[in-house]
Design a binder for these strands. Structure first.
Length: 481
RNA sequence: GGCGCCGUCGCCAAGUGGUAAGGCAGAGGUCUGCAAAACCUUUAUCGGCGGUUCGAAUCCGCCCGGCGCCUCCA
């Protein structure tokens, strides 16, 4: 079956065919490293990580480039405010990025270039644009002349006249047209700078992506991704720059993810309604966040709320408990071997591929995973009665883990997951394990003596402490609610 | 003002022409001393009005409600 993706350029789903055989060249705008990542960054990271993983699974050979913007106004401002050299600001937040994203199980891209490592490429590109008469120098700045690019506005569906009419654009005397954008910015005293044919300065924001994408992926590549908010002006400008240099359309499929909303409003720095990923991790398991983000289609807005995250964590816990149960049913006296062929032939794979091939519909994938989870629990319930059910459970669990693995889910040891959840809950609940266990012991003594009223009293006390009990054939288990 | 998106069960969320996936919550049941967990059963005609069509949640028009981009932003 063929993969179909929604291309922002055409506004429709198109069959995905790479430019060259199995090779997929993919570029995604990364983050500007001047602060901790918020949930919006997490969404973009998870979306394109999932796409990257699926392309590999599908047999493509993706080369995935994701950049760091490590020089820009906000970084300079942050450095000045805090009195820390800008290089240290970026280093700190790049480290934080890896820490936060690592917990979200984001796989490493093929290349992770930094803007500041590619200044010569950017200068070369700007020089070409100036030589072609598409860009012009003005008092140490260099601007791209929008008039020289008739296709300007095609990606975002904007007309240049409308843009001028809207005119929220900076009034800048040195620009010939208010819509012209900076390729090179003259540095002010005390600001970081690089030498250039137009004097000391630094690159504009948009040129870095054009320079790095063409450097690593060529003049035309397959996929370019990023958040919807980058469509205009960032990606529009990128097209203008790249096409201006090479004369070719740089990107074949544009893929944009939707926003994360809080109370129906876009989460953003300027609105101040954002949550950093590390704040979330204090109360929720990172994988719960990943599952939550995958439970909506990547192009739809997703409403971030405590309730929605709690729900995601509940679902994830259900999966891990069943997965853990399947591991326990693997009785060492009856080793289950040769499961691989059965796992590989499992019908879940077909449903998974069908959903993913339809523009990466992870929400539908989750529905299929849930159905298989039910089947697994059913087998688990029967597992004590025979080898067949036990084997079924093992196949089910194995498939669930492998399919989930393609979208970055269910890769932890269930016991470890349980411990992590406990660790997170105990931070907010203030638990006293000794007291809990002594109450459980008391309850079980009462139960043995068939003193149900006493037993229930102990249990009620535990419930008040946030402890949920579960009497199993192997004894009483407990967890934090 | 220009361009665009969204409105599906109490809540979250798929579905873009053939009579509504999945999850959470709820109800009933099985199991259990009772619970919990798990399993089974059960809950919608798709914002409103009109149109196109044999047939629309899905296409068109209008209206109502919400949001986004046009400035840095994933």
């Amino acid at each position: 079956m063929n993969l179909r993706v929604f291309n922002s350029l055409s506004g429709t789903k198109e069959e995905f065919v790479p430019l060259e055989g199995n090779r997929v060249r993919m570029y995604v705008c990364g983050v500007t490293v001047y602060d901790y990542c918020h949930v919006g960054h997490a969404r973009a990271a998870v979306v394109f990580d999932t796409i990257f993983r699926y392309l590999k699974h599908k047999g493509f050979d993706p080369c995935f480039v994701r950049n760091f913007t490590d020089i820009d106004d906000k970084i300079i401002m942050r450095a000045q405010e805090s009195g820390i050299p800008w290089q240290e600001v970026t280093r700190k937040f790049i480290d934080a990025f890896y820490e936060d994203m690592g917990q979200l199980n984001i796989a490493a891209p093929t290349v992770e270039p930094k803007a500041t490592d590619h200044i010569p490429e950017m200068i070369a590109m700007i020089r070409t644009l100036v030589e072609k008469g598409i860009a012009y120098e003005s008092g140490g700045d260099v601007f791209y002349s929008i008039q020289k690019f008739p296709d300007y506005g095609r990606l975002s569906g904007k007309k240049t006249d409308d843009l001028r009419a809207g005119a929220r654009v900076d009034v800048n005397e040195s620009k010939r047209d208010p819509l012209d954008f900076a390729l090179w910015k003259k540095s002010k005293p005390g600001e970081p700078f690089w030498e250039s044919p137009w004097g000391p300065g630094r690159p504009g924001w948009h040129i870095e992506c054009s320079a790095m994408s063409s450097r690593y992926l060529g003049e035309t590549f397959d996929i370019h991704g990023g958040g919807k908010d980058l469509i205009f002006p960032h990606h529009e400008n990128e097209i203008a720059q790249s096409c201006g240099c090479s004369g070719k359309q740089p990107v074949r499929y544009w893929i944009h993810n939707g926003f994360v909303n809080i109370d129906q409003e876009k989460m953003s720095k300027s609105l101040g309604n954002f949550f950093t990923i590390r704040d979330i991790y204090k109360q929720f398991h990172p994988e719960s966040l990943r599952l939550f983000l995958l439970s909506n289609h990547y192009r739809s807005p997703i409403d971030f709320s405590r309730q929605n995250l709690e729900e995601a964590e509940k679902v994830l816990t259900r999966f891990y408990e069943a997965l853990g149960g399947a591991a326990e049913t693997q009785d060492p006296t009856a080793p289950l071997s040769g499961l691989d062929p059965e796992v590989r032939a499992h019908p879940l794979w077909g449903k998974f591929a069908e959903a993913m091939d339809d523009d990466f519909n992870t929400a539908v994938v989750l529905a299929h995973l849930n159905e298989e989870l039910r089947a697994l629990n059913k087998s688990l319930a029967d597992a004590c009665s025979g080898v067949t059910a036990r084997r079924q459970a093992a196949v089910s669990a194995g498939t669930l883990r492998r399919v989930g693995g393609v979208i970055g889910l269910f890769q932890q040891d269930p016991a470890e997951f349980k411990k992590q959840i406990f660790a997170i809950r105990s931070q907010t609940l203030d638990v006293d394990v000794e007291k809990i266990e002594s109450l459980i012991t008391s309850r079980n003594s009462a139960r043995k003596a068939r003193q149900w009223a006493d037993a229930d009293r102990f249990r009620d006390e535990l419930i008040r402490m946030g402890v949920a009990l579960e009497d199993t054939p192997n004894g009483t288990e407990w967890k934090l609610k």
